[in-house]
Design a protein around this nucleic acid. Structure first.
Length: 743
DNA sequence: TATGATTCCATTTTT
DNA sequence: TGGAATCATA
């Protein structure tokens, strides 16, 4: 049985037991906000008699939604399943399928992702005979997206001057073509819901009357449309609870408005206000240090986190010569901390930009430190995955232009640019889809090409006849009938192998879907997949260091956090040419500061920060001063372990012409090295060279993506080291070290 | 139509 | 520096 008084502190309890009227929960980092949300849902259902399906809890990411749903089910049991716990986008998609017809939206609409959208914009430019030099599709796309999230439709789009006039024209055509294709982009899902509810009383009534309670997580990340949707949903009853932390607002560049949380009461008068400032995650010193950074924000709700945890260690700081040394020293620190009982999986390396990950990957690989990089190419963005999905989309909705254009000549079937252009002209002339235009192509397209088009259509039609057999069957048919798999098999390269693997994984996940879903139809599958932009990180297990950007780290926590690249210009980031010596852009600087705060507060026990004197960026060496944020951490909380700081001294041998350094004490060991001499190891700054070549040895176990685990037989040194490995079932292979995981 | 050469340009990223 | 995108050429 749930024991609210026992499981929650006073503030948490107050928030969880609040029932009617608007509630704003400012939940500092590590203060147990998910616990509050889930217990609040439990209270509503269990103690207030609210039926679960009348509660809507909204998050930003699928991952967060999944987590929350699981925790709600954990508290409520099976009836937790009936609560609406989902992302803004999937909530809106669901509502639009149900009620969108009232505002002219087909219930079978297709959802366009970023690249579909870009392709559509590019088509519109072509149709309007506008240069994609002058009007970069990317820029127009962003413009359209920004407009939608600011609730500006094509006809409201402010026109001043030639450029914006054209953009409006493109925007208008884009909307028309999207409508023709029965497609909605991500922005539409929110925008059309908000505008639909605002302009159509019946729709507003139908939607808003479904829910009695609205909860929103990470409210500091909401943008204008999202606020509007929340407002519209809560209008009948005002039962809206939002949870967030203005100090962790790091997405303003993508439209999030901190003002939403700072000025919440203005939109919802009579708001009850709860601040959760007790932190359960970090040590006292980490919180103090983080506070030093965040307290300098100009615009924020004043608060200071406190904890009853130990003060813990100080923040370690390392100044390095360059990014390579930075990586080596971090690697060394990671190893020492591992000896101290912090497993690799409890350590993370953070950086401001993805580009910084490369050096860490290289060094970690040569030093055999198991690691995984979060980010990079996502599963659903891979060409082969998108191709197969496009076929499935086209089967479901032959009007889906983006899907059509994607697969019409994939794999190559002799239908080139010219043929497609002509076909599109026919389609535009008759006001029908490109797909349907194939039947009317005879006059405008030479017989040979018309025949190929007809062949393509016949292929699709043959699959459409089997649509009831379900998505897994269709996927297999597509891969076989098009020769897609055969072509990849014939290619027989590392690249094609990985593509085949991805396709296999996709088909596998479709099969899983069919096994689990109550309605295992193609339509349901496509709906699910459209809003699922990444496959769940299944390989979170395994003892590996995690490498990621600070942005990606939000919401996570680790025992040890290594914050790297702390140079003024990199973190805080300064765009290429821009000079912010005068801080002309306080808003952006504020966000960088919050980002740094987010980084620090991910750590439970230890924070290590590194800075490089010289960093090669775009090939050019740059020398930036240490990050200004370092100066905002109180001095007494920093332990400077920089080798140079401790050991630099003039060299005695003139021939060296260098500064030489005595090996520095590493003081990552607990207990902290107040008296370094007693128990320290020593950093030998030359260790890494020898270690790099010594990383692989005969007899060692290695793993290969395709061949699995094997044993090293021989090592061929060189710039590109190769290794002979014996794999069970495959025999001995010679493989580039780069393709092997050591272990 | 496909491939290699060339040019261009650099945050952060979910849905 | 490196990657993506575009261009030129066979």
């Amino acid at each position: 049985m749930l024991n609210f008084e026992n499981d929650l502190n006073e503030r948490q309890l107050q928030a969880a037991l609040h029932v009617e009227g608007p509630l704003l929960v400012i939940a500092g980092a590590g203060s147990g906000k998910t616990r509050v949300i889930t217990y609040r849902v439990a209270n509503l259902v269990q103690n207030c008699g609210i039926r679960p399906w009348r509660i809507l809890a909204v998050t930003f990411t699928n991952k967060a939604a999944k987590e929350m749903r699981e925790r709600v089910i954990g508290l409520l049991g099976a009836q937790g399943n009936d609560c609406w716990v989902s992302t803004f986008h999937s909530t809106c998609a669901r509502l639009l399928r149900k009620h969108g017809e009232l505002v002219g939206i087909s219930p079978t609409f297709t959802i366009y992702d970023d690249s579909d959208q870009k392709a559509m914009v590019a088509r519109c430019l072509k149709e309007l005979a506008l240069s994609d030099k002058q009007f970069a599709p990317r820029t127009i796309q962003h413009d359209i997206n920004r407009s939608k999230r600011e609730l500006i439709g094509p006809d409201d789009y402010a026109v001043d001057g030639f450029y914006r006039e054209r953009v409006q024209q493109i925007y208008q055509l884009y909307e028309k073509r999207m409508n023709d294709a029965k497609a909605l982009d991500f922005g539409d899902l929110l925008y059309r819901t908000a505008v639909g509810m605002r302009g159509n009383g019946e729709m507003a009534q139908a939607i808003a009357s479904r829910f009695d309670f609205i909860l929103v997580d990470e409210f500091q990340d909401t943008n204008r449309v999202q606020l509007e949707i929340v407002r519209l949903l809560a209008r009948p009853h005002g039962n809206v609870c939002v949870v967030g932390d203005d100090d962790q607002s790091i997405y303003s560049w993508r439209g999030a408005d901190v003002g939403n949380i700072l000025d919440f009461e203005r939109v919802f008068p009579g708001t009850t206000h709860v601040t959760l400032d007790r932190n359960y995650r970090s040590t006292g010193n980490i919180l103090k240090a983080a506070h030093g950074v965040v307290d300098k924000l100009l615009r924020r709700r004043p608060k200071e986190l406190w904890t009853s945890n130990d003060p813990g260690e100080r923040i370690a700081y390392l100044q390095c010569d360059d990014e390579r040394e930075e990586a080596r020293l971090v690697a060394r620190a990671i190893r020492e901390l591992t000896d101290d009982g912090y497993p690799l999986r409890e350590q993370a390396v953070f950086y401001r930009t993805n580009a910084q990950s490369r050096v860490f990957e290289e060094v970690f690989r040569t030093l055999s430190i198991p690691h995984r990089v979060v980010g990079g190419m996502r599963f659903y963005e891979r060409a082969e995955v998108k191709d197969l999905l496009a076929y499935l989309r086209l089967i479901q909705n032959t009007g889906d232009l983006a899907a059509f254009l994607r697969v019409i000549n994939t794999p190559a079937r002799g239908i080139g640019k010219t043929t497609v252009e002509r076909l599109l002209a026919v389609a535009a002339g008759r006001g029908i889809s490109a797909y349907d235009a194939i039947d009317h192509a005879a006059g405008d397209i030479s017989p040979a090409f018309a025949k190929r088009l007809a062949g393509f259509k016949a292929l699709i039609e043959s699959w459409r006849a089997e649509i009831e057999s379900g998505p897994a069957h269709l996927a297999t048919r597509v891969l076989d009938d098009t020769g897609y798999v055969a072509a990849l098999k014939a290619e027989d390269s590392a690249e094609s192998d990985s593509r085949l693997e991805n396709l296999q994984e996709l088909v596998g996940s479709i099969e899983d879907f069919e096994a689990e879903s109550d309605t295992p139809t193609l339509e349901t599958f496509l709906e699910l997949i459209a809003l699922q932009t990444d496959i769940d990180q299944v390989n979170f297990d395994g003892d590996q260091v995690t490498l990621m950007t600070v942005h990606a780290a939000k919401g996570l926590e680790f025992d040890v956090v290594h914050i790297t690249g702390l140079e003024d210009g990199l973190f805080p980031y300064r765009q290429g040419s821009r000079d912010w010596s005068l801080d002309q852009d306080p808003e952006e600087m504020e966000e960088e500061r919050r980002l740094f705060y987010v980084a620090m507060t991910r750590a439970r026990r230890r924070v290590l920060m590194t800075q490089a004197r010289v960093r090669r960026l775009f090939g050019q060496p740059r020398m930036d001063p240490p990050s200004r944020f370092l100066a905002d951490v109180p001095d007494d909380l920093i332990q400077d372990l920089s080798p140079s700081r401790i050991d630099v001294r003039p060299v005695s041998r003139p021939s060296a012409g260098q500064w030489s350094r005595r090996p520095a004490p590493t003081a990552f060991k607990r207990p902290m090295a107040e008296k370094p001499a007693a128990e320290t190891t020593w950093i030998d700054r030359s260790y890494d060279q020898s270690a790099e070549s010594a990383a692989v040895q005969p007899g060692q176990k290695v793993r290969h993506a395709r061949f699995g685990v094997g044993q090293v037989v021989a090592v061929h040194a060189g710039v590109k080291p190769k290794v002979d490995v014996t794999f069970t079932g495959y025999g001995i292979k010679t493989i580039l070290l780069d393709y092997l995981e050591l272990g």
